[in-house]
Design a protein around this nucleic acid. Structure first.
Lengths: 202, 202
DNA sequence: TGTACATCAGTGAACGCGCGTTCACTGATGTAC
DNA sequence: TGTACATCAGTGAACGCGCGTTCACTGATGTAC
């Protein structure tokens, strides 16, 4: 850092988000504290208030950023996959699971915490946008046809639920019954399961 | 209570678990405190230590109890359902979702918290037993036959994941994209989706 | 180019709070004889 | 049946801790003229 000796930080907003992410992934939501974030950023613990109001404001901003990156991660997985609608949808699911595995506490903040303010426009926007990513692939698949019409209505919730279930249960090791297996094998199993849901033409 | 004026409580162990459940469902895991539990039980805040050691001991015991009731809830839903293997499995899934909906924070404690001691034998036993309930129905369904063999291997994780995904995303209202609908309609949708996973004979 | 002044960003001390845990204690219960 | 004593269950006061928030402040930056 070239600005180290300066009184003003210059980019504290971004630095605090980075520190908050590290704090969250290290200590979990229960151990997360504003003072811990400030410590990591090397700044007085009163400084964050200037940028985020209070601790929930910071968590809200962090959740929004995480949804943004979550969406980008899914899109990039899909970009590397074959263009047919089924492979595209499966790729979105795998990207979803990979993100949850790689950032378990950010993922938990996005979906399982009551601390972010869900009415915050920025958070709401990014949360909705990340789901559009999945919905678009479902729509493309349904448009292709060859699918029972009532099953088509259920495809989005069904595919989303199985992806979310795999992400939380298996990727986050919260599965007492299924031993952690080789990561490559696990990924193949995820892919097989997701494909079986995406590809249920009669 | 007939023992109200007595110095000794008589059944404080059970009373503390009841109070802990109320505290958890009222204030969530983040707001849960040992002192709050003692307050609810009308007892000194040093008393719980006698029965559970520390706060995590209490949460561990509560998680074990919750797994026990979770299993019982699934079994009773299944008992009221038709005896064919598919209906039985679907009923287990619906019982799973109902429990999560009715006791969101207990459910979160069971599956998404790092505070209970997962190595506690009693907790581990009840957690494993509750999944056996699901596995048995899957086994019965596979034994009946008429199913592709590799799909049979994936059926348990697949069914479990979709059930868990529906429970966490929809039942707990963490679904930004799907508006909360009429409970009866929602239940029918859950049933339709679960059945489509259970009944994928080629 | 230089000066005055407003605005902004971060400081550091202070506050009050609720928490979990410890510990000497006391009241109640059960058991031995 | 009665007494002495050990054990058990719950008390209440005390502790130290880290937390979020507030607030008067100071150092740095930007702008007007």
């Amino acid at each position: 850092m070239a600005v180290e000796q300066s009184y003003h930080h210059g980019n504290l907003h971004a630095a605090l988000l980075t520190a908050a992410e590290a704090e969250l992934e290290d200590r979990g939501l229960e151990g997360f504290s504003l003072r811990g974030v400030a410590r990591r950023a090397g700044v007085s613990h009163a400084a964050p208030a200037h940028h985020f109001g209070d601790v929930n404001g910071l968590l809200t901003a962090l959740a929004a950023v995480s949804f943004e990156r979550f969406k980008a991660a899914m899109e990039s997985t899909a970009a590397a996959a074959p263009p047919d609608p089924i492979s595209q949808l499966v790729a979105i699911g795998l990207g979803y699971i990979d993100y949850a595995t790689g950032h378990p506490h950010l993922f938990g903040l996005q979906f399982a915490s009551e601390r972010p303010d869900r009415n915050d426009p920025r958070l709401a926007r990014h949360a909705a946008a990340s789901l559009v990513t999945l919905q678009e692939r479902v729509d493309a698949l349904v448009r292709k046809g060859g699918r029972k019409s009532d099953a088509a209505d259920d495809l989005a919730p069904k595919f989303w639920a199985i992806t979310h279930g795999l992400a939380t249960l298996f990727a986050m090791r919260r599965s007492p019954a299924f031993p952690t297996t080789d990561p490559e094998e696990r990924r193949m199993r995820f892919e097989r399961i997701l494909r079986s849901v995406a590809d249920d033409t009669p």
